[in-house]
Nucleic acid binder design. Structure first.
Lengths: 197, 197
DNA sequence: CCCACTATTGAATATAGTTCAAATTTGACC
DNA sequence: GGTCAAATTTGAACTATATTCAATAGTGGG
């Protein structure tokens, strides 16, 4: 009875290996032999669990995005603004803890690969929905609201990426900044269209 | 005297071919034979001009980013706010005209490839600098100003990507929205730090 | 028209990704 | 504890694609 903690399935363990490799090297740099070697299996076995290298990559990507979404799941018992703050803190914490993976996640992707893009868009869309949920009914029908919030999600992503490099602010300040930006942007939305030029 | 308009060098023509191919297919999907066939040359010749496929991709990427930067060059004869607006309009126009290339550009990249990331970061950095230039001296020393502007650049990118899909607003309105967001965010920066929780 | 230099080719090579038949392991059932 | 089918695993063969290179063709100056 050597192995004590073998609850994890082979597939899961492979994904963990992939997570490690893809967070440190680009898609092309990671060769099948590396994956097999890191997981102590033969090349062939990888193909028993995943049809192609590309599918393997997608599985790894899906794994980490769904983990991200889980960890930042909104707590409905909180009032909207507090809920948003807590969500942002969780988001930055994830970015911090899985820094390399997180960066690879966002700035990664395999070329214009539509499947990769679809996964990332799904994550972004989910965040947009969550933010929309937190808005008071009165704000929900502003023109271009969804567009604006999508932009704001991009804002948060870009913010977090720089923050990971030069940790000047605390996570709390970052969240504060993000929230203020969201509110300010939504406010300025009220005036759009009624403006000249 | 067949060819009348052959001013373009072979290297340039190859980059144009790459631009076309990489905007329609992912890096992996584009194989050397495609490139050679599309350019009516032998595979070997590609290697006379570019050391590897990857370098070829980088050259193509650099070509389009520098074109983007050129077309959005700030017009210093305008006052800051107007300069920003014109720059944004040019930016959205580029996104519109080269939609596929533009999307591939931003959401593309080859895995976590540091070289690709470096090129895109350079573009973003340039925009951050340009925005900073336009700010009045009094605003230049706000805490986390650079961070915020980087976030805003992410905002504009995300905005433009959604906009390309569902063209709801005019370019003018988009620019208006982006500008308001920038100003509002910078404003709220004044209060950061002095705030509790 | 000759020479040196540049551009171009196509076949050979190297480096992955992928397939597959065979070997091993597992576990359910007798 | 033995048997057998299914699940897992292997390693070698196969394929596709990137890369190299020696040989060839073109170009322009003297």
């Amino acid at each position: 009875m050597l192995h004590k903690h073998k609850r994890k399935t082979r597939r899961e363990r492979l994904i963990e290996v992939g997570l490690d490799l893809f967070s440190r090297h680009s898609y092309d740099e990671v060769v099948i032999d590396d994956i097999a070697a890191s997981a102590n299996i033969s090349k062939g076995l990888l193909y028993y669990y995943f049809p192609t290298k590309h599918d393997f990559y997608l599985a790894v990507l899906r794994h980490s995005t769904s983990q991200l979404l889980e960890l930042t799941e909104p707590d409905d018992s909180l009032e909207p603004l507090e809920r948003l703050r807590v969500g942002l803190l969780a988001y930055f914490t994830f970015a911090e803890m899985h820094a390399r993976t997180y960066v690879a996640l966002l700035r990664g992707g395999v070329g214009v690969d539509p499947e990769v893009a679809a996964i990332l868009n799904h994550v972004r869309q989910t965040y947009v929905e969550r933010v929309l949920q937190g808005l008071p009914e009165s704000e929900r029908h502003l023109p271009a609201l969804r567009l604006t919030i999508t932009g704001w999600v991009g804002f948060v992503e870009a913010l977090s990426l720089v923050w990971l490099e030069e940790r000047q602010l605390s996570k709390e300040q970052l969240a504060e900044l993000a929230i203020r930006t969201l509110l300010a942007t939504i406010n300025s939305l009220h005036e759009l269209g009624s403006s000249s030029r």
